[in-house]
Design a protein around this nucleic acid. Structure first.
Lengths: 191, 191
DNA sequence: ATCATTCTTGACATCATTGTCAATATTGAC
DNA sequence: GTCAATATTGACAATGATGTCAAGAATGAT
């Protein structure tokens, strides 16, 4: 390697993630990324190729963060507590910042028209893995659910989290979201 | 009125709705609308002002259709049957067309960056009214839920429908969505 | 039949964005 | 210290979108 990169790649991707999270893949422009990172547009093109390539890196970072946080929140012997922790985490995650950033996965999923196969695949991956995590938690309960039930229920829970993300975008406050989540957990597991 | 409009307004709005439904507010261009309706861009500007004005009309039409269909589906003495009907309707609604059109309300809600206050208001209105409809259904059961419970549960159900819309965008098939909805209804009301 | 009014049409200016490129600067390897 | 390889920079072309406008066409009212 000769001519050495003037910027810290990790820092650039972290900053790009912030931009994408706030604006979405479609609305975030290369100008936005250049301004936020302090790296010129041309350099970004040179280093990554195009906007989508940057997005994919940023999204991978996001997914890793998110799934780790989800795993931690779900790590509790009591299923109800685990789910409550999980929803708390997820709601804080999407209502953080001002204005709130929302959920990047959900926003990306809804960008169907724009997104390439690679992007769609990432979204499916995150949701699939999340479902796995939740399924494991449900199945792990002492005397827990049968595998098929745990699987179906996990899917329902993932679906509900997506609903929370939409409701946040529609204007629901953190408090309202938490109340919904609590009601949901009560209704679904509290029986 | 002299110089008479060459096109049928109702037909134009209906066609515009189809375009917005398939592409979303942001991605649908005036060119798309002109091509689909057979009305020139200039004429559309003259008649409606701008794209958002057309969208608002189209969305109102959509909302009316949707809420009426929801009301009909929910009109059943048995709460479980009512909800099953409702979810069937909503899932068919979003998986119709090829490729599927998805849910316009949800897509619009996620377009936060672009949307004006007027657009956001419409989205909130639809979701609010839907919640009312569901709440009424839940409360109307003979020996039904207390009002506060019905209200909270209605919100959860609305949230879940939004989740289904996201999962559809993420690639879930009609069959998968129906299974999730059935599991949800079982878990929430079947107790 | 004429007129005033409205609609239609195509051209235009403007703007934002993407992606490319040649010239220049930088620097590790030898 | 020279060189080859890479990064940076600013300019450029191309595209696609929005919104405006003047000129022309159409028509109900008189």
């Amino acid at each position: 390697m000769v001519g050495v990169r003037q910027f810290d790649e990790d820092e650039v991707i972290a900053t790009a993630l912030d931009v994408f999270w706030r604006k979405g893949l479609h609305d975030a422009t290369m100008q936005d990324l250049a301004a936020a990172t302090g790296v010129q547009r041309g350099s970004l093109y040179n280093a990554y190729g195009d906007k989508e390539a940057i997005f994919l890196r940023a999204f991978d970072r996001y997914a890793a963060q998110f799934l780790e946080a989800a795993g931690n929140a779900l790590a509790h012997r009591d299923t109800t507590t685990a789910l409550q922790n999980f929803f708390d985490m997820i709601i804080v995650n999407m209502t953080d910042g001002s204005p709130a950033r929302g959920c990047l996965t959900t926003r990306t999923a809804l960008d169907a028209g724009i997104s390439s196969a690679a992007v769609r695949q990432r979204v499916q991956d995150v949701l699939g893995r999340l479902e796995q995590l939740i399924g494991k938690t449900l199945g792990a309960t002492p005397g827990g659910r049968r595998a098929a039930d745990a699987h179906r229920l996990a899917r329902v829970i993932v679906t509900f989290t997506r609903g929370l993300a939409v409701m946040e975008r529609a204007g629901d406050s953190r408090k309202q979201l938490k109340e919904s989540a609590a009601t949901f957990v009560d209704a679904v597991v509290g029986a």
